[in-house]
Design a protein around this nucleic acid. Structure first.
Lengths: 237, 237
DNA sequence: AATCTCCATTTCGTATACAATCTGTAGGCA
DNA sequence: TGCCTACAGATTGTATACGAAATGGAGATT
C-alpha cells in the first residue's frame, strides 16, 4: 500500500498545490484516528511539519474547517473538531437520508470493474482489522461508502457524503461503544451481493438498515462529562 | 429593509471577522444577480472595495469557493462560478431529495412565530417582484427555503441546503427560461397553508412537486454555445 | 494563604514584500 | 506575410514582519 488508503480526494475546493496536499494528509490522519478530536493544530506546527509557511498551513486548516473536520476559534486557533451528540445524530440522520438513494443509483450504474473496486475496499478493511488497526479499518470503511457515491456518479452528493463520512469518523472516535468486532463487514458484504446482481431495491434497503445499525452502535447518551460550552450549560431551559 | 434580505448567514466555517463579512456581502451580491456567473473577482479589487488587504480578501474568496459560489483556478484567480448543465441537474436532484424531508420536519416543529417569519419572506418576495427586481425576489425566495430548514432545526441539513440554494441562484441566472411571472409564489403559498395546519404529509408532497417545478423551469438543453472546457470539447466520445 | 494585578509569552490576524506564473504584444526571422 | 521568440505587464503564490488578543505565571497586596 503506497499512499492513502482512504483516497478520498476531490472534496476540497482548492486549486491543486501544497495546501491541498496538506489537507489530504491531515484528513487521512484524522480519519485513521491518529489524531484525537480536540487536538490542537497550531499554524506554526503544521507549517513546519510540512515545510511551508503559516500562510499555506492556514489555507489548509481553513479548508478542513469548511469540511467540518477542524474547528477554528478566533484568536485561539484550529482544533480537530469534537462533534456534539446533537451533531452526531444529525450526521447519521443525513446519511440515512442520502446514502440509500446513492446506493440505488450505484446499483443501477454498477459494472464489474466497479465491483472490483468495492471488493478491494472490503478486503483491505478485513486485512487491517485482522491486524488490529481499527483506525485504518475505519478509513477503508469510509472509502467503501465514498466509492459507492463515486459509482453513482453524482458529484454533488458525493461531495456532501464526503464531509458526512469524515465527520462520522470523528463521531465514532468519540462515541463508538459497540465492542463486537466485524461491526460493519456483514452489511458491506450484503451490499456487495446486491450490487453484483444490480438489485436497486435491495441495495437501497440494505444501506438504509446499515445506517440504522451504525447510528445505534453509538453511545449518544448525554453524559454530563462532555464539555458543553458555558453558554449551553447556563442556557435557560 | 435594513441589511441583507437574503440573510443566509451561518454557513461559512470562518470565525467572525472581516473575512466573514465580505463573504456575506459577496454572497448577497451573487444571490441577487448583481454579479454574473463568470465574473472575475480579483483579490486586489475585492480587497480595495472592502478596505482590507489581499490576505483577507483571499480568505473570503476561498470560503466562497468551498460553498461552490466561486471557482478558483490556480494562478488565474477567482471567478463567480458557472455551473454546468450537469451540475444544474445534480443540484436540483439533491434538493429534491433533501427538501421534502426538511419540509416534513419543519411542519412538525412549526409555531405561529415561525409562520410569521415565512410569511414575511413571501410578502417581501411579492413586493420586490412587483417592483420588477427579480434578483431580489430570487434572494427572498432562497431565504424562504432556508428559513424552513432553520425551523426544521437540523443544522447540518440546513448548511447543505444553504450551498444548494446558493448554487441554484447561479443556475437560474444561467438557465432560467420560463418567463411567466409568479413562477414560484403559488408553491410557496401552498406550503404556507400546509405549515399553518402542520400537515407533514402535505408539506412534504408540495415541496417535492415544487422541486420538480423548479427543475423543469430551467432550459438545460445542451446548447453548444455554452463554454465547455477545451478538454471536454475534444474528449473522445 | 488566597487573591488580584500586571507583565511576559505564545499564537493568531493582518499587511506587505518578493517570487513565480500566466497573458498579451512587439519585434525578429524565415 | 506568417510564425516564433522574448519581453513587459498584471495577477496570483508564498514568505515574512509586525500588531492584537488571549493565556499563564510571578509578584504584590490584603
Amino acid at each position: 500500500m503506497t499512499i492513502a488508503p482512504a483516497d478520498l480526494r476531490g472534496s476540497f475546493s482548492l486549486p491543486p498545490g501544497k495546501a491541498l496536499d496538506i489537507c489530504h494528509q491531515l484528513e487521512a490522519a484524522i480519519l485513521q484516528h491518529r489524531m484525537q478530536p480536540g487536538m490542537k493544530l497550531a499554524e506554526d506546527e503544521v507549517g513546519e511539519l510540512f515545510g511551508v509557511s503559516r500562510t499555506v498551513a492556514r489555507t489548509a486548516l481553513q479548508a478542513l474547517a469548511h469540511g467540518g473536520l477542524v474547528t477554528i476559534e478566533r484568536n485561539r486557533g484550529a482544533f480537530v473538531s469534537r462533534p456534539t451528540i446533537r451533531e452526531a445524530h444529525e450526521v447519521f440522520e443525513a446519511r440515512a437520508l442520502i446514502e440509500p438513494r446513492i446506493a440505488r443509483m450505484a446499483a443501477r450504474a454498477m459494472t464489474p470493474d466497479h465491483l472490483k473496486v468495492l471488493q478491494g475496499h472490503v478486503d483491505a478493511e478485513h486485512e487491517v482489522t485482522a491486524q488490529g488497526d481499527m483506525g485504518m479499518a475505519l478509513a477503508h470503511s469510509g472509502a467503501f461508502h465514498l466509492s459507492i457515491a463515486d459509482i453513482a456518479d453524482q458529484a454533488i452528493l458525493t461531495q456532501i457524503l464526503h464531509t458526512l463520512v469524515s465527520r462520522s469518523s470523528l463521531i465514532i472516535a468519540l462515541y463508538w461503544h459497540r465492542r463486537d468486532t466485524g461491526c460493519e463487514s456483514h452489511s458491506h458484504h450484503a451490499l456487495l451481493k446486491a450490487f453484483s446482481v444490480r438489485d436497486e431495491n435491495a441495495a437501497e434497503e440494505i444501506m438504509k438498515s446499515h445506517m440504522v445499525d451504525l447510528h445505534s452502535g453509538l453511545d449518544l447518551r448525554d453524559r454530563s462529562e462532555s464539555h458543553r460550552s458555558l453558554a449551553d450549560v447556563f442556557a435557560k431551559p
